[in-house]
């Protein structure tokens, strides 16, 4: 048996092993993080977006199915659950500040969540998208599992909702800093809350790595808006039908 054949066998074997995909995923993330730091923490250089592009590039070049990759990388994906639960700790540590701003948090939560839903509806309608696609887009501002649940409830397509929701998270995480600087919002609690309310987990991860207070308020908005939107959307749809 020649050595090329042996190498090919090893390659085929590696593709089925979590070890390989875990190494690729973490490696890609470290590259993304390195570029982010090299760019002097430029908000447009998003470590998550970079690592996603690196991994996708590898999958496309070597013609590997996503399911095969995910099968290997699911250990990383699994940790999303415990990480979500763990967000209770930073929120708890800032409970005094949250109590102090409780009224503005409540008002912003309701107005912001409603705005997110209506602007999505309005834009999608004016871009001529069809009914089912619009329904699938409505819950895109909340964390993916909630968004998919709502989508199912209102006869959207959950898999489409997942894609649009994650895309919202990535775009929000990349562009929010730019928008908030442009609008001259200095209040870190407001910045964080707005990021969590619009771009859920991915935005929160981003906010946490940049500013502690913003990260905590983002995590708070992530949890609160998830609950709020899952009540608001079904009610709004009932009213408008």
């Amino acid at each position: 048996m020649n050595s090329v054949e042996t190498l090919y066998r090893i390659w085929v074997y590696l593709q089925t092993e979590p070890l390989f995909w875990l190494t690729i995923t973490i490696g890609a993330f470290l590259v993304g993080d390195y570029l982010y730091k090299k760019s002097n923490i430029n908000p447009l250089v998003n470590p998550v977006a970079i690592s996603i592009l690196i991994v996708s590039g590898i999958l496309i070049i070597f013609d590997i199915e996503y399911e095969r990759y995910f099968n290997g990388a699911q250990f990383i994906h699994f940790l999303l659950g415990p990480a979500t639960v763990a967000l209770a700790i930073p929120i708890y540590n800032q409970i005094k500040l949250i109590q102090k701003e409780a009224l503005s948090i409540t008002i912003t939560l309701l107005v912001g969540s409603l705005f997110a839903i209506f602007i999505t509806y309005y834009l999608a309608k004016s871009f001529g998208l069809d009914e089912q696609l619009i329904l699938s887009m409505l819950p895109r501002s909340v964390t993916a599992p909630i968004a998919m649940g709502i989508s199912e409830l209102i006869d959207g397509l959950p898999s489409l909702t997942a894609i649009i929701t994650i895309a919202t998270g990535i775009i929000g995480a990349s562009l929010s800093t730019f928008v908030l600087d442009f609008m001259k919002v200095k209040d870190m609690t407001a910045r964080g809350f707005a990021i969590g309310l619009t771009s859920h987990g991915i935005g929160t991860a981003r906010a946490m790595s940049r500013n502690k207070t913003a990260g905590i308020f983002s995590a708070l908005a992530l949890a609160l808006s998830g609950v709020a939107v899952s009540i608001i959307i079904p009610v709004v749809i009932k009213i408008f039908n």
């Binding site: 690592s51 592009l53 991860a205 790595s209």
Partner: peptide, 18 residues
Amino acid sequence: ITSYLSLLFVPIGVGVVM
């Protein structure tokens, strides 16, 4: 765990691209 929150979104993010 929360300090590596960003990393945890890579697997599903790849799904969006694919």
